[in-house]
């Protein structure tokens, strides 16, 4: 069983943290991962920066632009991660847009992920039908979970299809929006969380987009197995650096 699924079996609400590789400094990748594990994160999503991140709001756009300016590339990220499994055991997911992965070569990319010990991929602009037709076997043979998104607009039928295709968790996008921190969720979102949880899907649900504090964490985990924090974390390291994330994580979980 891969590390994500082991983690999902623990009886607790999970916190997954996203950061953009190469931000704020080009060589911060390994330090951020190690410090996140020490500080109590459950899963880490490593963002592979892209020049044209369609699904992202201003915070992640800006971090991606800066990371590319700093010189981040797919090759370099893989080099930085080469011995990451010697120091951390936390589940690692790479989140990236499809074009850079295509240019690296999808097969080579998957193999490299396996060598390093990456557990899953989130590729928001790789359509599920293309995945099923062309890449599913490749991902599975490299022990990679492909993680799909659902939104408030996703039809019931499609959610069942996505559930059937998922091998770890479903990434539940909190609202019709690009990524970005929000301070609280409205009734519409709570109703959506409830509606999906009542579908009794096979896959656990992790809520992302808009999670920034204890309130949004509590609202989401009333119905879901955990949360993903992205923009709020980027904003945090922009202000406070990358040395210690304990307070950041504790504030979301408990305060």
């Amino acid at each position: 069983m891969n590390r994500i699924n082991q983690k999902l079996q623990e009886n607790k609400k999970l916190i997954s943290i996203y950061f953009t590789a190469g931000y704020p400094e080009i060589d911060d990748t390994v330090t951020i991962i190690q410090n996140l594990e020490k500080s109590g994160a459950d899963i880490i999503e490593i963002g592979l920066p892209f020049s044209d991140p369609l699904a992202d709001g201003p915070t992640i756009q800006a971090s991606s632009t800066q990371a590319l300016k700093n010189g981040m590339t797919t090759e370099l990220l893989f080099r930085q991660l080469e011995s990451i499994r010697k120091t951390v055991n936390i589940p690692l997911i790479i989140m990236g847009y499809f074009n850079p992965i295509m240019q690296y070569g999808v097969e080579a990319f998957c193999k490299k992920c396996r060598e390093i010990g990456i557990d899953g991929l989130i590729i928001p602009d790789l359509p599920i039908d293309v995945y099923e037709e062309q890449y599913q076997t490749l991902f599975e043979s490299n022990n990679l979970s492909n993680i799909f998104l659902i939104t408030p607009q996703t039809s019931t039928e499609r959610i069942h299809y996505i559930d059937a295709m998922s091998t770890s968790f479903i990434y539940m996008v909190s609202s019709a929006s690009t990524t970005g921190a929000q301070s609280g969720f409205g009734n519409e979102q709570k109703y959506y969380f409830k509606r999906i949880s009542e579908m009794k899907l096979n896959s656990p649900l992790i809520v992302g987009f808009g999670i920034s504090n204890h309130e949004t964490f509590t609202q989401a985990t009333e119905y879901a197995n955990g949360v993903i924090v992205g923009s709020a974390f980027i904003n945090h390291i922009k202000k406070n650096g990358i040395d210690n994330f304990k307070k950041f994580i504790v504030n979301i979980l408990n305060k």
Binding site: S51, D52, L68, N99, Q103, Y104
Partner: peptide
């Protein structure tokens, strides 16, 4: 060369690393 831009698989100008130029 072949890649993805604005939701379509097509020809586009990009770096070796897949960043759109």
């Amino acid at each position: 060369n072949e890649g993805i831009i604005h939701g379509s698989k097509t020809l586009l100008m990009q770096t070796k690393d897949g960043q759109i130029t």
